[in-house]
Measured scan of single mutants.
Amino acid sequence: GTEDLKEEAKKALKKGDKERAKRALKKAGLSEDQIKKFIKEVL
């Protein structure tokens, strides 16, 4: 589900894998702006 994808994105970001995080967030249905915001909040 969406929460799982967001968790996956957080883990990817902590490993420095932004591309993987972006893919997971796109799958979760987030827009580009939401993805940028999510990444900023996590990092």
Rank of each mutant, 00 (worst) to 15 (best):
E8Y: 12
A9R: 01
E7Q: 09
K18N: 11
L43H: 06
L43V: 06
I39D: 01
D4L: 12
R20L: 12
L13V: 05
L30S: 00
K11P: 01
I39V: 05
A21K: 00
E8F: 11
L43R: 05
S31Y: 02
S31G: 05
E19N: 07
D4G: 10
E32R: 07
G29P: 00
A9L: 04
A9W: 03
L30T: 00
S31A: 05
L13T: 02
L30N: 01
K18H: 15
K15P: 01
K22E: 15
A9Q: 01
A21Y: 02
D4V: 11
A12H: 11
E7G: 06
E7D: 09
I39F: 11
T2W: 14
K26Y: 09
K11W: 10
K26F: 07
E3K: 09
D4R: 11
G29T: 01
V42P: 02
K26H: 09
A24L: 15
A24S: 06
E41F: 07
A12V: 03
K37E: 15
D33A: 11
K15M: 15
E19C: 06
L30K: 01
K40N: 14
S31P: 04
K10F: 09
D33V: 09
A24D: 05
F38R: 00
K37C: 06
E19I: 07
R23M: 11
D33S: 11
E3Y: 07
Q34H: 05
K22I: 15
K36Q: 14
A24Y: 15
R20E: 13
L25F: 02
K22R: 14
E41L: 08
A9N: 01
K11R: 13
L43K: 05
A28Q: 03
D4F: 13
T2H: 12
Q34V: 04
L5N: 04
E19M: 08
D4T: 10
K18M: 15
L13S: 01
A9M: 03
V42A: 10
K6F: 15
K22V: 15
V42Y: 15
E41V: 06
A24N: 06
K14V: 10
K26P: 00
G29C: 03
D4S: 11
K10G: 03
V42N: 12
K11S: 11
R23V: 13
K40S: 14
A24M: 15
G16I: 02
K18R: 13
L25Y: 00
F38I: 04
L43T: 08
D33H: 08
D4N: 10
S31M: 05
F38K: 01
F38T: 01
E3C: 05
K15L: 15
L43S: 06
A24R: 03
I39W: 04
V42K: 04
K22Y: 15
K18A: 12
G29W: 01
A21L: 04
I35L: 03
K37Q: 15
E41S: 09
K10W: 09
D4K: 12
K22Q: 11
R20D: 08
E41Q: 10
I35A: 04
L13A: 03
K11C: 05
A12R: 03
K26M: 12
K40A: 15
E7N: 10
F38M: 03
A21S: 02
K14D: 06
L43C: 07
G29S: 02
A24W: 10
E3D: 12
E19Y: 06
G16M: 04
R23Y: 07
F38N: 01
K26T: 10
K27H: 07
K18S: 11
G16L: 04
G16F: 04
D33Y: 09
K18D: 09
K22T: 13
L25E: 00
A12K: 02
K40I: 12
K10D: 02
D33M: 09
E3N: 10
R23N: 12
K10L: 13
K26S: 09
D4M: 12
K6H: 10
A24I: 15
K15T: 12
L25H: 00
K22G: 05
G29H: 03
L13C: 06
L30A: 02
E8K: 06
K6Y: 15
K15S: 14
S31F: 03
L43P: 04
G1M: 13
Q34I: 03
K15N: 14
A12I: 04
T2I: 14
E8T: 07
K11T: 11
K27E: 13
I35N: 00
D33W: 08
D17T: 01
G1Q: 12
L43Y: 09
K10T: 09
E41H: 08
D4E: 12
E8L: 11
K36V: 13
A9Y: 03
R23L: 11
K36F: 10
I35W: 02
D4Y: 13
R20V: 09
E41W: 08
S31V: 03
R23G: 07
R20P: 03
I35S: 02
G1N: 14
K10E: 07
K10P: 01
L43G: 06
K14R: 12
E3M: 10
A12G: 02
K11I: 13
I35Y: 02
K6S: 04
E8D: 06
D33T: 09
A24P: 00
A21G: 03
D4A: 14
G29N: 04
K22C: 07
E41G: 07
L30Q: 02
K14I: 14
L5W: 14
K27F: 06
A28C: 05
K26E: 13
K37V: 12
K14L: 15
L5C: 07
A21D: 00
K11A: 14
S31Q: 05
K11V: 12
E19Q: 08
D4Q: 12
K26V: 11
A28L: 12
A24K: 05
E32M: 08
K36E: 15
E19R: 08
V42C: 05
K11L: 13
K40D: 15
L30C: 05
A12Q: 06
G16R: 04
L13Y: 04
A24Q: 07
Q34W: 04
K6G: 04
L43Q: 07
K36G: 08
I35V: 06
K14H: 11
G16V: 02
G16C: 03
G1K: 11
I39L: 09
E32C: 08
K26W: 06
K18E: 14
L25M: 02
L5I: 05
D17S: 03
E41R: 07
G16K: 03
K26I: 12
K36I: 14
K40R: 11
A12S: 06
R23T: 12
K37Y: 08
A28N: 02
K27N: 09
L43N: 06
K18L: 15
E19F: 06
R20N: 10
Q34N: 05
K15W: 09
L13N: 01
V42E: 08
G16D: 04
A12D: 05
F38S: 00
T2C: 04
K14P: 01
A21H: 00
K10H: 07
A21T: 02
E32N: 09
K18I: 15
E8N: 04
E19V: 08
A24E: 07
E3L: 10
A28P: 00
K18F: 15
G1W: 14
D33Q: 10
K10I: 15
E7Y: 06
V42L: 10
I39Y: 04
A12P: 02
K26Q: 13
R20M: 12
K37M: 13
D4P: 07
I35T: 03
K40Y: 15
L5T: 03
L25A: 01
T2Y: 13
V42G: 05
D17E: 08
E7H: 07
E7C: 06
K27M: 12
E32P: 11
A12C: 05
G29V: 00
L13W: 08
K27P: 00
L13E: 00
K6E: 09
R20K: 12
L13H: 02
K10Q: 06
L25R: 00
E41A: 10
K14C: 07
K15G: 11
K14F: 12
K6D: 03
E8S: 06
K10R: 15
K6V: 14
K14Y: 13
T2Q: 11
E32S: 08
K26D: 05
G16Y: 04
G1S: 14
E41Y: 07
K14T: 08
K15V: 14
A9K: 01
K37G: 08
I39P: 01
K18Y: 15
G16A: 03
Q34S: 06
A12T: 02
K36A: 14
G1D: 13
G29Q: 03
K18P: 11
E7T: 08
L5Y: 12
L43E: 10
E19A: 10
R23C: 06
I35M: 05
I39G: 00
G16E: 02
V42F: 15
K27D: 10
G29A: 02
F38D: 00
A28I: 06
L13D: 01
A21Q: 01
K27G: 05
K18Q: 13
L43W: 07
A28S: 05
L5F: 10
Q34E: 15
K6R: 10
A12N: 04
L5E: 04
A9E: 01
K37S: 12
D17P: 00
F38E: 01
I35C: 03
K6L: 15
V42H: 14
E3F: 08
R23D: 14
R23F: 07
